[in-house]
């Protein structure tokens, strides 16, 4: 564990000392599935931005909205929610392709609806991890895809599959 910590810190510090920082923003629509057989998949929309201290490491924050995980037995019963994430990111640039990974915490608020009635509300903080790949396009644009895994959001794990449309500056 100490070796891993030292490796990360070394990478971070070496990056800060050798490279200029990079800002980026991205919008990321996609689909989300929950680890609960009683619900259908839902949709997810993320908008996030970050700063890369080095080509390899950065910090990222984003807003994530989950829309309507409907109960399989009745579409009128569903759960939806939103939240804010903060995490560290790792990047591996290979020419115009960048492999991404991340981990952090996601503060969320979820709401359950049955028709017009609100039948529940919950909030909390959960860990998440992410992986993805982006292709750097001309004019500082990027496009790619990836996946987020949120652990234990109001009683279930959520896995997303996203498309990224980004801008780097």
């Amino acid at each position: 564990m100490k070796k891993l910590y030292a490796f990360v810190m070394l990478g971070l510090l070496s990056g800060v000392s050798h490279a200029e920082g990079l800002w980026y923003v991205s919008i990321s629509p996609g689909a989300a599935v929950v680890d609960n057989d009683d619900f259908k998949s839902g949709s997810v929309f993320q908008i996030y931005g970050g700063y890369q201290f080095t080509p390899y490491l950065g910090l990222e924050t984003g807003t994530t909205l989950f829309d309507k995980f409907a109960a399989k037995s009745d579409d009128r019963i569903y759960i939806q929610g939103y939240g804010q994430s903060f995490g560290v990111t790792g990047h591996v640039p290979i020419k115009r392709i960048v492999l991404n990974g991340g981990a952090g915490l996601y503060g969320w608020r979820m709401e359950a609806q049955a028709g017009n009635d609100k039948i529940g509300e919950d909030q909390g903080v959960s860990p998440y991890v992410s992986v993805g790949v982006d292709v750097i396009l001309p004019a500082n644009m990027s496009i790619g895809g990836g996946s987020y895994f949120y652990s234990d959001v109001s009683g279930t794990d959520i896995l997303t599959f996203n498309i990224h449309y980004g801008f780097r500056f």
Binding site: V34, N36, D38, A71, D74, I79, E111, E121, D122, V153
Partner: peptide, 13 residues
């Protein structure tokens, strides 16, 4: 419901 929404609403469903 105030916690475990997916579990509680799933049971309800």
């Amino acid at each position: 419901f105030s916690d475990d929404l997916f579990g509680n609403v799933g049971d309800l469903s």
